[in-house]
Nucleic acid binder design. Sequence first.
DNA 1: TTAAACTTTCAAAAATAAATGAAACTTTAT
DNA 2: ATAAAGTTTCATTTATTTTTGAAAGTTTAA
Lengths: 167, 167
Amino acid sequence: MEFKEAKNKFVQTWGALGSQWGINKTMAQIHALLMVSNEAVSMEDIMDELQISRGNASMNLRALMDWGIVYKEYKAGERREFFTAEKDLDELASKIARERSKREIKPALKILKEVSTIEAKDSAEEKHFVDQTTKLYDFVLKADNMLDKMTEFNENWLGRLVLKIMK
Amino acid sequence: MEFKEAKNKFVQTWGALGSQWGINKTMAQIHALLMVSNEAVSMEDIMDELQISRGNASMNLRALMDWGIVYKEYKAGERREFFTAEKDLDELASKIARERSKREIKPALKILKEVSTIEAKDSAEEKHFVDQTTKLYDFVLKADNMLDKMTEFNENWLGRLVLKIMK
DNA sequence: TTAAACTTTCAAAAATAAATGAAACTTTAT
DNA sequence: ATAAAGTTTCATTTATTTTTGAAAGTTTAA
């Protein structure tokens, strides 16, 4: 396979994977493109490579910067802006985890807490509801904490040891 | 909050969460409904509670069964079928992880392997591409393995210990 | 201060994903 | 064997999400 073909395949695949996980295709594609670029890329070039409109490029770059996984860069003597992606994968995973936790999991936990603490009457149905949502709350909380700690966990010696054992 | 209201809130929230993670809303809602039901539910009742059509209910129940997280149940003396959800959360997480790994991560890994093993010419651009995609391959593989082992990890003593330390 | 170069916004259009519902199919009791 | 009870399928419709593009907004150099 040739470089250009490989690069395109990678960008397409990353885009498809993104949309399967609730991240829009273009956003994932831009990120992919920046990940494998050895230097900062202008919006013009992004538009050109991905065949997307200026507005689309602008909005998704903004979103990526909001997630903290793409940075703006200024080049001396150049008026226009260039973009680079976070390339350290642990850092990337950590930021994505933090962001999704904040945006989705934390609000869901709040609701779970609410619904799991209703006054359960004596019906088996209501008892089961409270029991199950309580378990779910605990589970999601635990999973959220794990996600949160994943990176530092990945980096510490005990984590490495456990990872080895798990393989 | 009253039981009916709480149940509805839970089903809606779970549905919204699902669609943010690439699972369709109805599928997640049906699952939510079954999770908090203390007894098996008929298709008729699901349609009724979620206000969805027969076809929609049927297709999403089928999908949930394909994922292995919803089961058909037959009641003596009843012709129609009833459905229950996997209620053990570790088991649920494990099945979802397995399924998403099989459907999405494994194919993505295959592509990553392909594109990361192209013959990199001497340009810095191509070298960076190969380097970055290789790192990504390793990272995704590691993450996939972790997901795979999460359940048994959660259950074993060392896992529990590490979890405690991580908190 | 102004005009060129560039970026952002957002209403409308296009693309995509999900839901409907009626017909086809299957199962089971008689 | 058959008809009643129930389930599945899938072409069409509907809803949702994403993209476009032109206008508005910014910034900077002269």
